[in-house]
Design a protein around this nucleic acid. Sequence first.
DNA 1: AATGAATGAGCTTTCATTCAT
DNA 2: AATGAATGAAAGCTCATTCAT
Lengths: 219, 219, 219, 219
Amino acid sequence: MPPVDSARERTDKHDLILDAAIEVFAEKGFHHARISDIARRAGVADGTIYLYFRNKDDVLLTIFEEKMGILIRGVRQALQGVADPLQKVRIFARYHFRQVEDHRALAEVLQIELRLSNKFLKEYRPEKLWEYLGVFADIVREGQETGAVRPDLDPFVLMWAFFGSLDELAMQWVLAKHRRDKFSLEATADTVADVFIRGMAGSGSIELHPVVPRTVVES
Amino acid sequence: MPPVDSARERTDKHDLILDAAIEVFAEKGFHHARISDIARRAGVADGTIYLYFRNKDDVLLTIFEEKMGILIRGVRQALQGVADPLQKVRIFARYHFRQVEDHRALAEVLQIELRLSNKFLKEYRPEKLWEYLGVFADIVREGQETGAVRPDLDPFVLMWAFFGSLDELAMQWVLAKHRRDKFSLEATADTVADVFIRGMAGSGSIELHPVVPRTVVES
Amino acid sequence: MPPVDSARERTDKHDLILDAAIEVFAEKGFHHARISDIARRAGVADGTIYLYFRNKDDVLLTIFEEKMGILIRGVRQALQGVADPLQKVRIFARYHFRQVEDHRALAEVLQIELRLSNKFLKEYRPEKLWEYLGVFADIVREGQETGAVRPDLDPFVLMWAFFGSLDELAMQWVLAKHRRDKFSLEATADTVADVFIRGMAGSGSIELHPVVPRTVVES
Amino acid sequence: MPPVDSARERTDKHDLILDAAIEVFAEKGFHHARISDIARRAGVADGTIYLYFRNKDDVLLTIFEEKMGILIRGVRQALQGVADPLQKVRIFARYHFRQVEDHRALAEVLQIELRLSNKFLKEYRPEKLWEYLGVFADIVREGQETGAVRPDLDPFVLMWAFFGSLDELAMQWVLAKHRRDKFSLEATADTVADVFIRGMAGSGSIELHPVVPRTVVES
DNA sequence: AATGAATGAGCTTTCATTCAT
DNA sequence: AATGAATGAAAGCTCATTCAT
């Protein structure tokens, strides 16, 4: 993920609080993090947090919204100038894991703590996530138009399957911190990309594996 | 999923409480479910729950342990007699989604509520999950020995990638209940299986294995 | 007011808490009384209060409800066997002030603290108060039927005027505790009764003061 | 009530704030009214209020002090030129209720919100109220000197009894706004006056004083 | 084994008030 | 005089857990 605030004043309370919250959430977990912990870390009073955010949930959700925005801009930029859809898949995977690796605390919050929030999972519509994944879905659709991607694959299903793989591996990588068995995210990115690229590829692109007709499966 | 415990009486307090808990957790969420809710639903006193479980977390974890045990036995049985590793992948996917579809309340608890428990994500070692996924990792290893699966793929990475796909799609399917846009898990199983089978397959291996009819899975 | 619990166990938590609350409310005021103050005084845990009452307001309202019930039964009993409506007015006044005098803490709560509760003044319908005052309104109506009370007086207005007088004097007597100028409630009862009896009396009963026709006033 | 402050500019912050406060207190209640609400309504900054008033309580108390001052001057003026003490009682009652009727928001604040303030009831000495009621007590004493009022009545007791009646009825009238059963304060004034006049009158005094037409009061 | 009344720790949020500008 | 961003104290209520019966 790109630097959160490349050249702005560090005293802006909004950012100050969010950055403190990311650290505290990553350390203690959302549920166990007290507002006063965040306030102390940010160097402001408890009440100040409520001048910038509605409540504790809002702090978490804002982290999600703002950081996802950055993520979306980042992945679009990384894909710029790349023509081959399958190549884009690899870039997407690498980009995703790179962000996780470069922003561990943030990744931990996004990967784990966000999911601990009832509000997030059940009430909130994570449109920013959909937008992020929409970038991938567009790659699929584009590939299907050029014949690079098999036309029988549902972009919606493929999108969640791809994200599920990235997300689960990122989760395991983050959790590995608490255990002792870290693994390389970089190699993982290529493995996942390889599998999906071969799995998605249209007949014209990977000659070795003819497509099994879908109807057979559904017999 | 098979009957939870075919050989034992259904009035056994242990099972009575777990079944009540699954319903309550699915309805109100783990956090908002009160012990007294579970007790009332199970027809026992609050204190009785503590005769069978250490605490609220333990109830959730026990659901996980016991249900995963059933899942593991079930998937092994579904794979029995199947020789082709790639075919096994398809069966695994179908089996997984079939369980989600047939046990919605349980799936909701396993998919969503389980992740709301700090204990589960950070402190607990979900060995039953590893055992379940180990079945898949073994398929990969086996396939690599016979040449059906590309030897350059890390079974560990592949395992989490595959599970991530299944899990994320199951999550979206469960969450779709709260929204209005359900989709077919059956077709989804085949799409995911297709992508992974092609992605994993060693050269020239795909044509060899005709699809096993679905009835086998459901036996 | 009659003894709250003439011959019952003092360990009943409900009464224990209410009695403690009356004392604490009288001492510190409703707003400044903390639930933990009441709990400590009653010798129970904070949470126990919530087993018997919905919240702090409910404790105050229950005091009102229960004590007013006793007050109503008491005033009815005091009026039993008295035939003359004007005599009943005197008995009502004396009874009211006697209760205030005998139950200072309770009177203070009912007089002062109850009125500090927004809920009570704006949202709550104090039906028990209406029932208590209804006893007085019935005296008026009865007197109007026998000719003892002027027929042109609205019982509703008279009821609130009479209660206002009693209440304000009781308030001043209670507040006098905080100042230094106590006065006799007994003599006060007779003064108020005298004024209202003469003011209410029909022409047949107090010959000296012919009624000024109401129409003149409204000219 | 006469114009609040005829000789001074209406943009004076002091008055601006008080007028805003009366409205806000009447609408939301003293307790739920926030300083920022008053500030916004008055068109000033929060901090500005503290340049004119010590604190929130002081705002309420100042409303009381200033408005009571006006009330005192008003009632004295209404009584000017009236000789008969019993007639004065009627004028007092009419004047009091007329003020309540003409200044609902203010009446609501004085009737209800003022009593919600602990400070007012327990710590504050409402000398302005005493001065207002002193006008009534003086009427009583004066009447006792001329024989128009029974000499055995304690002016202090009578004063609180009379005020209690007025106040309670005004309270019921104000509260009736929240319910649906308004009643006429005008007729009520005469009823209360009638009762007290007869109740206070010395022998043979009543016939002497014809009722003064209402227009005098409204002059 | 079962009960369920009792416990009491735990924490978000509000808002009157301050004070640097 | 005026501002308004920042402060931080303060407490009601819930509910997992216990334990006497």
